[in-house]
Nucleic acid binder design. Structure first.
Lengths: 210, 210
DNA sequence: CCCGCGCCCTGACAAATGTCACGGCCGGAA
DNA sequence: TTCCGGCCGTGACATTTGTCAGGGCGCGGG
């Protein structure tokens, strides 16, 4: 498979130390792969990558400091030679879209069989795009977020569970306006509650940027 | 550590195939450990365990079919010789309590360093209890669920986001009663919203059974 | 026994939430 | 230019939600 060339150098980013270490063990079984760096926070990705110059970075989406999508974008500009493979727990349709827009070269969910991961890494390293086909279909079906900018902003603020008055003050809007945006979001998500709307938007990855 | 005795036989249960495989790789690095079975659903734990008679079972809490706590209880009665080490993503205080009550011998969160996992397995196999100390402290501080049976039931139903009328019909109660239980739950959790109450209760592991 | 305590259940009331119709603003099409 | 459509912002209104006071029931202690 990888005859005699130098091994592919990997950077792993995942906030769960146990999973990170386990992935390192799994990938180290492959003779043509080497893990050269591990980080547990999104904002440590770029510094560590600059120091160790990996060929491929495996990034989780849910991470403290900086989410995987933002880390992808930062890494692509800081170290364009490094490919990015996003590895995430949830197959949120929006995540895939955002990851690709941010410059990721591959997207794999943690449900995929373990043996396929090494192949995904090799494909990405070879310049190919790797995407879970079922997730890709779902992404196309779901489409981009129907929510307008303000609507997402308000929904995001509503996630914390505060009352309308607090949201209004935090966003410098009238209470009526906040209610209206929430109502629109509820309608567009097909929910009947503010809470349900938040959940649906979250599941689709429409609330990502903070 | 394990001079010449037979290796410890392990069963792995985790719904994410990638994590499961990675853990298998990690644990297989230890010469005194062998993975003899892997499952991705809680209701497959007992059948597989009966067939392969592992010495220690590593169970995730979040799993389809049957959650890790219920699987622990089932496994302890079906195969008492097999020790159980619960390995979970979230350090929900209630999870630890419930796991121990269900007969688990150890409880580890996925934040712990990878190198400690093998030791945890060995300790559990030796008959010791393994518990994350910080989590144990938090569990004692948080205490058991303050929610009454009906209150948890109503909160669980409210998780889906339905209106009071639907909950009332589903639970065969008056709307007023449902509101009252919800109000009590809101008060006990310290929340100001039904939605916030649901989140807090979920985070503390008070909504477990179904 | 009788009392107190906690849980369950219920309806009436106040407060928050969701809906609606409306006006201003901007950018593209006719 | 004018018109049209989308997004933002706002207030009035109906609906839903949360709070409160209260009654019934079972259980353990005095």
């Amino acid at each position: 498979m990888s005859g005699s060339s130098a091994p592919i150098r990997l950077l792993l980013a995942d906030d769960q130390a146990l999973v990170r270490g386990a992935l390192a063990a799994l990938l180290s079984l492959e003779p043509d792969l080497t893990v050269v760096a591990e980080v547990g926070r999104g904002d440590e990705v770029v510094p560590e990558a600059l120091q160790h110059t990996p060929d491929v970075a495996l990034l989780d989406v849910e991470m403290p400091g900086l989410d995987g999508i933002a880390a992808t974008a930062a890494l692509r500009t800081a170290l364009p030679a490094c490919r990015v493979l996003v590895v995430t727990t949830f197959g949120r349709p929006g995540y895939l879209r955002r990851a690709m827009e941010a410059g990721a070269n591959g997207f794999v969910v943690k449900d995929t069989p373990a043996r396929q991961l090494a192949d995904a890494v090799r494909r990405v390293h070879a310049g190919l795009r790797v995407v879970d086909p079922t997730l890709a279909a779902e992404t196309l079906a779901t489409g981009a977020s129907p929510l307008t900018e303000r609507e997402t902003e308000v929904l995001r603020a509503a996630r914390a569970g505060g009352a309308v008055a607090e949201l209004a003050k935090a966003l410098h809007l009238s209470e009526g306006t906040v209610r209206n945006h929430l109502s629109a979001a509820i309608g567009k998500t097909g929910a009947r509650n503010r809470a349900a709307a938040v959940r649906i938007a979250e599941q689709n990855g429409w609330l990502l940027g903070d």
